[in-house]
Amino acid sequence: MIINNLKLIREKKKISQSELAALLESSRQTINGIEKNKYNPSLQLALKIAYYLNTPLEDIFQWQ
């Protein structure tokens, strides 16, 4: 199971779900699903999230 700190990191950087979704060329619903652990992002999307949040991938997503 993958757990994530996306919501915590996103809020700390003062970025809304909609703003992050626009940067990622994704939907706000996708970001919401990832944050609620209802959806696991593809590797490509996970890497883009890490890039746009300027945060190491392993700080956002962790195996448990």
Rank of each mutant, 00 (worst) to 15 (best):
R10C: 13
S18V: 11
N40Q: 14
L53T: 02
Q62D: 05
L47K: 13
N32F: 05
L43H: 10
Y39L: 14
L20C: 05
L23S: 08
N37A: 07
N4T: 03
E58N: 12
N4F: 06
L53S: 00
K13A: 13
I31N: 01
T30N: 06
I60K: 01
R10F: 08
K14L: 10
N5E: 02
W63D: 02
I3Y: 07
N5H: 08
P56T: 07
Q17R: 07
G33F: 13
T30S: 06
L57R: 01
L8C: 15
I15R: 03
E35C: 05
A46F: 03
L24Y: 00
K38Y: 13
S27C: 08
S18C: 11
K7Q: 12
S42Q: 05
I60L: 12
L43Y: 14
I15Y: 08
L43V: 10
E58A: 12
Q64H: 13
I3V: 14
N5V: 05
P56V: 07
K48W: 06
Q17K: 09
I34D: 02
I15D: 00
A21S: 06
T30P: 02
Y51G: 07
Y52R: 04
Y51L: 09
P56A: 10
I31F: 01
N40I: 15
L8V: 15
T55K: 03
A21T: 03
F61V: 00
T55L: 06
A22L: 12
E19W: 08
N4K: 01
S26V: 15
E19Q: 15
E11W: 05
K36N: 15
Y51C: 11
A46K: 04
D59G: 07
D59E: 14
E19L: 10
N40C: 15
I15W: 05
N4C: 09
S16C: 05
L6M: 10
Q29G: 12
E58T: 10
E35N: 01
T30D: 05
L6S: 02
K14Y: 06
P56M: 07
R28T: 15
K36I: 12
A21Y: 01
I9M: 07
S27W: 05
G33Q: 15
I2M: 10
K13G: 05
K38W: 14
E58Y: 12
N5Q: 04
R10I: 07
A50Q: 03
A21L: 04
N54G: 11
K12I: 09
Q62C: 08
N4P: 03
S42I: 04
R10V: 05
K13H: 11
T55H: 07
E19K: 13
A21E: 03
Y39G: 05
N40A: 15
R10T: 03
L47H: 10
I49Y: 00
L43C: 14
K12L: 13
Q29Y: 10
Q17W: 05
T55P: 01
N37S: 10
N54M: 10
I3N: 07
R28P: 15
Q29P: 06
K38C: 13
I31K: 01
A46H: 02
N37G: 15
L47C: 15
L20M: 05
Y51P: 00
Q17L: 12
G33P: 01
R28Y: 11
I9L: 10
R10E: 03
I34R: 02
I60V: 08
I2G: 04
L43M: 13
Q64S: 14
A22V: 11
A22Q: 12
L45I: 08
A46V: 05
